[in-house]
Each structure stands twice: as structure tokens, then as C-alpha cells.
Nucleic acid binder design. Structure first.
Lengths: 230, 230
DNA sequence: GTATGATTCAAACGAACGTTTGAACAGGAT
DNA sequence: ATCCTGTTCAAACGTTCGTTTGAATCATAC
């Protein structure tokens, strides 16, 4: 009971992972030292290297533990919609809701650290750290391929490149949404935190509005030209 | 000429700032050491502390140098639209174009390092580093207040809180857009980099689609109730 | 030429970093 | 009781960090 958040459970591995997740979110990877992690977890300094091998391996495990669950839930949500559609193309709103709804659901789970992790994840997409990005890419490969395929089927008239970009924009909006009001206060100091359950409909309206927006003129033009040439 | 990118100009201050900007973008603040910066700039290690005082002060100056210009251009763009409107409320598209157009213009300027800086800036909104965020908030205070006022006038029927959130979402989409195809490749490995001038119309369509999307049901409901009660 | 102030330089500072080490300790199987 | 395997511990490893120091160098004014 000597350390701040040291839980009594003797599960050293889990204590390290939870402490690391929280500290990575608060300070970033580089600014979080092994001594901060082991101190917060109430374990010996050498425990990280004993249980995980290195700091980099610990970072990887912090992500793997959550991402496996997150992407599994995403696929389950997508397959549930596909089962209902019975072979027909899904509505874009259903696809977007399946992907980002799972994200926000985890982000709303303050009980088991899901909120902490999602804020960490949102920042990490643009993280320059090479090996973390490489790892994220591998973890995401299957789920992205499945969701993009669903979107291509749902929007057959929209160029695939355009869908890819808009998915990218949606990821950015979601990341900022989850990063929460901290970044918002950066712009509007007098902003009130409020019921986080309102975030989901708010974000979903915005995302679908962006996804279904008219194509930019240049894209339409180039498509027209291409069609004329053909 | 011994160092990699050491320009011949003897302007030590500017060489340090340029090198730091590039390295901060590539590796982040914490992972970029003074020795990397001074090595890249081709100056002595002690030069940073001599000219700027500390590493933190250097970080601050890297941002200040660009943000002053960026926000000045944003206000100029807004005031130009307001002059044309002649007192009438601006169209939302004009406001959004003024704010984010200036961002993308700087992001497209690969010549003078603007692109480097915008990628760095996009990541920094969600950066946990406290003093950097504090500094950003101060630098943004005026310009955000002006643009939000313009949006409130342009969309008198939309709750201000909703506008604030959507502005926040737009910032996220823009950050990811500028972070560029690196994050996109994370999702779709086979993605081609292409003409960056196409980004502007792409992003603008998405942002306006999101901004003008129907309000989420919950917000409409709560407004209706409030109106009934009044 | 010489004095003056600004700048650059090589070298070193103490502190903090991630990691390793080898002994100490635990508990169950033989 | 003894061995064995997994785990924890205090201490130290070598490296790198941001910063400081004091002398050397430069440009300019007298």
C-alpha cells in the first residue's frame, strides 16, 4: 500500500500494463520512464524487463492487449450488420456506426481503462515512432480491409480513392473527439465537460455528413473527362 | 559543408530553428536531442542554450515563429470575406475556407518548411506536454474567438455548443489530412501519394458536409423540449 | 593596435535513462 | 530436507541527456 495506485493484487504483469497505459497517455512514450511505470505499479524496477523484455516490448503489449479486443468487436459488429442485410450492400451509416461505435463504446468505458487507452490510441496514429506504427498497421490490416470492402460496395459510384480519404478524415475527427475536451478547451477556454454519451450521436452526424458530402468538383471533372475519353 | 543539411548561411538562430522543426516533426520533442539538432544545423552544441536559453524555449520559438504568421493570415482571410459581405453574416463555407484554407496553403508550402511545420502542429494539438499546450492556447485565443463568432452568426439556429464540437471535429480531420498519407498507409498499405493540391477540395467537401449535417436527434429533442417549456 | 562586446568552441558537469546482474526468496515436487 | 523453477530485489552497468563553463575567436569602435 506504499505506492499511490498500487493495487493489492499480486499480478505484477497486469499492474505494469495498467500503470504504463495510464502514464503513456498522460506523458507520451518517451517521457514515461521505466522508473515512473514501476513506481506507479508498485513493483521492482527490473520487473518490466523480466516480464516483457524491454520497454519497446511493453509498449507493444499495451497496444496488443486492447487492439485485439477492439478489432474483434469491430468485426463482430460488421458481421452482425451483414447478417441482417442478407447479402445486400450495407448502408454507409451502418458501416460507419459499426466501426466508430465500437471505438466510442470503448472510449466511454472509464471503468476498465478503455477511455485511457482510446485517448492514447488516437494520438498514436500520428505518432512518429516507427516500430509502433508498423505494429499498428499489422494489427489493423484485416479489419480495415473488411470495412473498406463494405464501403466500396455501399458506395459503388464514389471513387475508391475518395472513400479512402474520407475514411482517413473520419479517423481524424474521431481521434480528436476522443482526445476529448482537453483539445477543445485549447480553443475555447470556457468549455464545459458534459455527458459523454452525447458524443456518439454528435460525432456520427458529423461523420455521415462528411462521408455523404458532394464530391469535390475536381474529382467530378476528372471523372467526366475520363468518361468522355473512354 | 561537413554536416548533412548545414546551409552556408551563418545565421545560427535560423539554422537551429529549421533543423529543430524538421527533427521535432520526424521524431517528436522528447526523442529529439540537442545534439541531433545542433548536428543537423551544423552548429556547436552550446549554441541552442546561448541563443534560446533552453530546449523548452527553443520548442516554444519553433511554434511562435510559424503560428504568428499562420494566425495573422487567417485573420486577414476572414476580414477579406467580411469586407465583401459588407456586414451580412458570412456563409459557413467562406468561414471554413478561410480558416482551413490558410492551413492547407501553409501545408502545401514544401519550399519554406511550412509542410513540415503543419504536420508537427497537427500532432501537437493532442500532445500531452503541458507547457506546449498552454502556449498553443494563448497563441490561438484571438483567432479562435473571431472565427467562432463568425460561425455563430452564420448558423444562428445551431446551438453554439454543437458548432464548437463540429469545429473540433474539423480540426481533427484537418490534422489527419495534413499528417498525410503516412497515417493513411497505416490503413491501406498500397496507397499512392499523389498531387497534394487535390487535398484542399477533398477536405473542404468533407468538412462542409460534416458542418452542415443534420443535428443529432438528441440535440433536436432537447431543444424542442426547451422550447416547449419556454 | 587595442579594447570591447558578442559569438563560437571543446570539454566537462551531474542527473536520468534503459538494461543487466547475481543474490535472495517463494512454493511445490521429489 | 533438498532441489528446482519462477519471481523479486537492491545495486550497479554504460550511455545519453540538457546544461554549464571558461577559454578562443570574431567583428567593430576607438
Amino acid at each position: 500500500m506504499s505506492e499511490a495506485t498500487a493495487k493489492q493484487g499480486p499480478d505484477t504483469r497486469a499492474r505494469i500494463l495498467n500503470a504504463a497505459e495510464l502514464l503513456f497517455m498522460t506523458h507520451g512514450f518517451e517521457a514515461t520512464s521505466m522508473r515512473m511505470i514501476t513506481g506507479q505499479a508498485g513493483v521492482n524496477l527490473a520487473a518490466v524487463n523480466y516480464h516483457f523484455g524491454s520497454k519497446d516490448a511493453l509498449i507493444q503489449e499495451v497496444f496488443r492487449r486492447r487492439l485485439t479486443e477492439l478489432n474483434r468487436d469491430r468485426l463482430i459488429a460488421l458481421e452482425a450488420e451483414e447478417a441482417v442485410a442478407n447479402g445486400a450492400p450495407l448502408k454507409p451509416s451502418k458501416i460507419v456506426a459499426a466501426f466508430f461505435g465500437v471505438s466510442l463504446k470503448m472510449a466511454a468505458d472509464t471503468e476498465h481503462g478503455g477511455a485511457t487507452f482510446m485517448r492514447l490510441l488516437g494520438r498514436t496514429y500520428t505518432e512518429p515512432n516507427e516500430f509502433v506504427r508498423q505494429f499498428l498497421a499489422e494489427e489493423y490490416a484485416e479489419v480495415v480491409q473488411r470495412f473498406m470492402s463494405a464501403l466500396y460496395r455501399a458506395l459503388p459510384d464514389v471513387p475508391r480513392e475518395e472513400i479512402l480519404w474520407r475514411f482517413h478524415f473520419m479517423m481524424g475527427a474521431m481521434s480528436y473527439a476522443i482526445a476529448g475536451t482537453d483539445a477543445l478547451k485549447l480553443f475555447a477556454g470556457d468549455f464545459d465537460d458534459e455527458d459523454p454519451t452525447r458524443l456518439m450521436p454528435r460525432l456520427m452526424s458529423f461523420l455521415l455528413g462528411g462521408l455523404r458530402a458532394p464530391l469535390p468538383e475536381e474529382v467530378i471533372e476528372s471523372r467526366t473527362i475520363r468518361r468522355d475519353a473512354a
